[in-house]
Write a protein that binds this DNA or RNA. Structure first.
Lengths: 119, 119
DNA sequence: TAACAATACCTTGAACCATAAAGTATAGGT
DNA sequence: ACCTATACTTTATGGTTCAAGGTATTGTTA
């Protein structure tokens, strides 16, 4: 059960968060849980990673926030995508797909992985 | 024809170079050309990116170098994988595959990309 | 022959990113 | 009274890519 290391994840956290928000508004704490849940053990994103990214995204106007008071009495900062954020997400996905193609292109020919990594 | 941005590529240059070297020994200048050729316009890696990575890889003993004098009279520093490098490559590939699964998992449900990125 | 392009290496500085760690605050349960 | 879970924040650190600038040699072209 490989846990994704920092360098593997590098550059994709932004996209991951945008994807979650594309499915509907959410707040930091929930976004982290959603991601870690859906990643099924592969990902353990901490708050120190997610919150700075959210702030960066808002500064770039890809998302906007709104403070709310939840039924449980807690304050939550809900985020949702802006049109600009939607466009950026689509571009990120294109970048991702280009990278996948490149990597598959290079990894494909040789039988790398799948062997030789015994404990 | 999307050109891979820095952040997209982040963390994968090491793997890319290890893959090339797994196919046989090579030297910096040639590795760069090979990668850019095979990337077919998606990647334009510069020397300032590749050489530091090669030095880092050698320091970590994932590759070893050997100076040679080529037929054209030029000096080349040939690199080849060490067993440790081979293991690391295999691990990197595993990490990559885990990331691909995660991303596909999250991107799959919604129709992201493929539209909305005009011009 | 002088100039240039291609080959081949190197280093430095800036910018960016993920992350651990430490901190604040509140609600609810034991 | 204490602890856990929820919820947000900031700072400091280390790692990465990359543009830019630099050296040196070979072969080609004006």
């Amino acid at each position: 059960m490989a846990i994704l290391q920092k360098k593997t994840l590098d550059g994709n956290v932004e996209t991951l968060i945008l994807v979650i928000l594309q499915e509907g508004q959410s707040y930091g704490y929930e976004i982290i849980q959603t991601l870690n849940d859906r990643a099924a053990g592969v990902l353990k994103m901490g708050e120190g990673t997610a919150y700075p990214v959210l702030h960066r995204l808002e500064e770039r106007e890809l998302i906007i926030s709104r403070w709310t008071k939840a039924q449980n009495g807690r304050k939550r900062k809900y985020y949702r995508l802006t049109p600009k954020g939607r466009r950026t997400l689509a571009q990120n996905v294109q970048q991702w797909e280009a990278l996948v193609q490149l990597m598959q292109n290079l990894l494909g020919s040789e039988s790398v992985g799948l062997s030789g990594v015994g404990k």
